[in-house]
Design a protein around this nucleic acid. Structure first.
Lengths: 338, 338
DNA sequence: GTGAAAGCGCTAACAA
DNA sequence: TTGTTAGCGCTTTCAC
């Protein structure tokens, strides 16, 4: 039972007593074919279990692979999973499949994935850039007309389409919400590395809110942690400060999870908290978690729509799409300082 | 700036003044090539930005596509996302890429995804079967030697490798845990459709535990809901029963989330709860959520290992791998009935 | 309505 | 050490 050879179009043709080209015509519903010929072809196709070879077809047609390559940092992160789902369902109806790889947030892996995708001649590239990458190496591809869209974060050193959350405005709104409830010392727990685009933008939003309210910025209130565990420890450190914050702004889903855990461990139900990115159990926490909700499926859908229009020949200017966020007050953000 | 033609191996060869075959030899590090020729080839490759065309290579080599097709029900579900991540990292070092599609739990979509993958001549197929599917249509492929592994749920009507969680034993253990804490009326909230493999297995485990303890089975305590919202409503219905349960077993992550929400809405902190599948915030809930934790990355890794060994020619008998679960007592499962 | 020949980009099997 | 020829499975082009 060693891998049996799959039947080819020629096999089908021989069996029917016609030429490969005729079979091709039937299968692609192209040009005139006698109804009875068509029927006989279909019958043999079924009997032999013939499956057209897409690789061969694409090659001959000179078409690119009917796939789009997607690079995300981490599949297990539901944020990126949902983004990927949004993309997949949007492009599927166009007959495109999605090839994914995860970069684990390293530029080396990202680049090797991109190289694999390019070698496969994918029709388009969708990339969540890794934190420290540089994307000048994609310039030639872009100029050759390959649609490339960056997601969640813009490219570095390359002018290209991108679709991102309204990070800065969302973070500003979340922080302003805390300020509106009387807080003057607000801790910030951000992602790692601190140079990460989303981290920087959200940090700017945080500072915008402070500035708008005329509040001083205290570097000592800024903490960092990439995992929930690290964020929990960060929250505990902030609370242990001599002059601790009365509220926390957690700038991503892991940070929010960690902050909740950290507050719980410290037994502090009096500290206000706003998270960036919603969590499934947010409403049943004690207190229920106030968040700045992102729209991951919307980000995926927007990126997919952009890629499809580029594939359709849209040569208009490069765009930067901001997908809006939404503040959802649930309780934890409305606590007032003691 | 219409899609410029990518340089081919022949373009490189002409530029260097050699034959395509020589370039091929350099790029594949195959056979003897004069060092200076190699250097010149590499230089031109770089200058032209040449990218080998994998489609053409695979076709000529008669090799299948260096990709494995993965069908999952839903990318946004972190359970499947983590499974996918486990697979991807395991196969990447073998130079394989993962092509994913989501079936949305429908057999039609699953089948069309599988057809796409087969047309692409993927090297192997990894499928989380949709709830109601029938997989006899894959028999020919299996017999032709294509490695096919089913995940999370076994195939229907087809003898094939599969990797699943130890659903029945895990559910038995979770339920027995509740019984050990004095509960005699335990509600079951399961997935939809009720014919779903994991739902049936976990339900069996639930009944096993009851039987072992000599407790009666009450059909009225069995509820269903696919989403967290539906599960929350189910929990509320159960609690509103004339003779309500004192404990709940929620048979998947959405059910567990929903049960937590439902109990919170009803203001019931006295009802014991055990969830199947862990949740990120389980430990900070009030009370902290006791779960039967699955090992999604382990499931992915096991499936990947199996596929790789099949690709390496392992023709031994079909296997069914059970990935163990682990009971994590945190509080909600240890509440005693009033 | 159907077929014959050529070729997509690459490599296997030879030969030189 | 390098080149030549042929062909993977399909579609294009043109002929019948």
């Amino acid at each position: 039972m060693a891998s049996a050879r799959r039947p080819t179009m020629t096999d089908v043709a021989r069996e029917v007593g016609v030429t490969a080209k005729t079979v091709s015509r039937v299968l692609n519903e192209e040009g005139p074919v006698a109804p009875e010929t068509r029927a006989r072809v279909m019958e043999v196709v079924r009997r032999l279990g013939y499956q057209p070879n897409l690789m061969a077809r694409n090659m001959r047609v000179g078409a690119r692979d009917a796939a789009i390559g997607l690079v995300i940092p981490d599949m297990g992160n539901p944020f990126f999973g949902t983004v990927a789902g949004g993309i997949e369902s949007a492009v599927r109806e166009r007959g495109l499949t999605v090839i994914v790889g995860s970069s684990s947030e390293t530029k080396e892996l990202e680049r090797s994935l991109v190289a694999t995708f390019l070698a496969r001649r994918v029709s388009a590239l969708l990339v969540v850039p890794s934190a420290t990458g540089d994307h000048r190496y994609l310039r030639a591809e872009r100029e050759a007309g390959l649609p490339i869209v960056f997601l969640d974060r813009p490219a570095m050193g390359l002018a290209a389409d991108c679709v991102v959350s309204s990070n800065r405005e969302g973070a500003r709104e979340g922080t302003a919400h805390l300020i509106a409830h009387g807080h003057r010392r607000i801790g910030f727990i951000g992602d790692l590395p601190a140079t990460l685009y989303t981290r920087r933008e959200r940090f700017q939003g945080y500072r915008d809110a402070l500035a708008q309210a005329g509040l001083p910025f205290d570097k000592g209130l800024v903490e960092t942690g990439h995992s929930a565990e690290a964020a929990a420890a960060a929250a505990e450190r902030l609370l242990a400060l001599p002059d601790p914050p009365t509220a926390l702004f957690a700038a991503n889903n892991f940070a929010a999870t960690g902050a909740v855990v950290g507050l719980a461990k410290a037994g502090r139900k009096d500290v206000a908290l706003v998270g960036y990115d919603d969590l499934p159990l947010a409403e049943v926490l004690d207190p229920p978690l106030t968040v700045v909700a992102q729209d991951p499926a919307g980000i995926g859908a927007a990126a997919a729509a952009l890629v499809l229009s580029r594939l359709d020949g849209d040569r208009s200017r490069i765009t930067k799409t901001l997908v809006p966020t939404r503040l959802i007050p649930r309780g934890s953000g409305e606590l007032r300082p003691r």
